[in-house]
Amino acid sequence: MGEVIVITSGKGGVGKTTTTANIGASLAMLGKKVAVLDADIGLRNLDVVLGLENRIVYDLVDVVEGVCRLKQGLIRDKRFEGLYLLPAAQTKDKSAVTPKQMQDLCKELKKIYDYVLVDCPAGIEQGFKNAIAGADRAIVVTTPEISAVRDADRIVGLLEAAELNSPMLIINRIRIQMVKKGDMMNIEDMTDILAIDLLGVVPDDEYIVISTNKGEPAARDEKSLAGQAFRNIAKRIMGENVPIMDLDIQEGFMVKIAKLFGLK
């Protein structure tokens, strides 16, 4: 029996979809059978980030309504063995499915897959309720901004109310130089407020923009720092004990180069 993990944030634009795609890809690279499920009906993106848009024939709503079988709706990823996508419908809206239907769908999926990752839409309305309905665990994504942390806090509250206890936190898009200068919230500030377990810290990485536009998850790239962070997160989800990446070292290296050229 697999596990259903919902990836949520409350606030939009913090990187839920990118996180879902990359954790999905990382878990698949580690030999797991993974289904990623786009719950953002009407504003689907996960298919684009994974570069699978042109393969969509059936979607989540078709599966739920019984237009096609579950197997027909699932798209096999072109690069990652064991990674499957169930895309959202674009021409419908959130009311096209009910939490009960999502629950049943998740139940079916976790019979077949080791991990089912649900990409939750922004907000706390119907789409959010659908997305968390079938989940066993939750991951809350936030960025080091007060607004994002505020929304994440609300989400943690709602998750606990829905009996999804002890959600895990991913801090996305952190810039260690700015944190050091005191221009950006640091990790401790955020874990203090949210008081949930830290699953990972993902540095701000230009490569993410490139990979998203190409439709290729960064997790595959050995050089990408963010990719490395996502691979570590996947290992932690599987229960391995991987220390949080020391982003300071990376920065230290850059400073060394700067020093070398006499810039500092």
Partner: peptide
């Protein structure tokens, strides 16, 4: 097109 369908045939854009 992202995808082109005519009758029962489906073609998709190259990757």
């Amino acid at each position: 097109p992202t995808q082109l369908r005519i009758g029962k045939f489906i073609a998709r854009a190259p990757d």
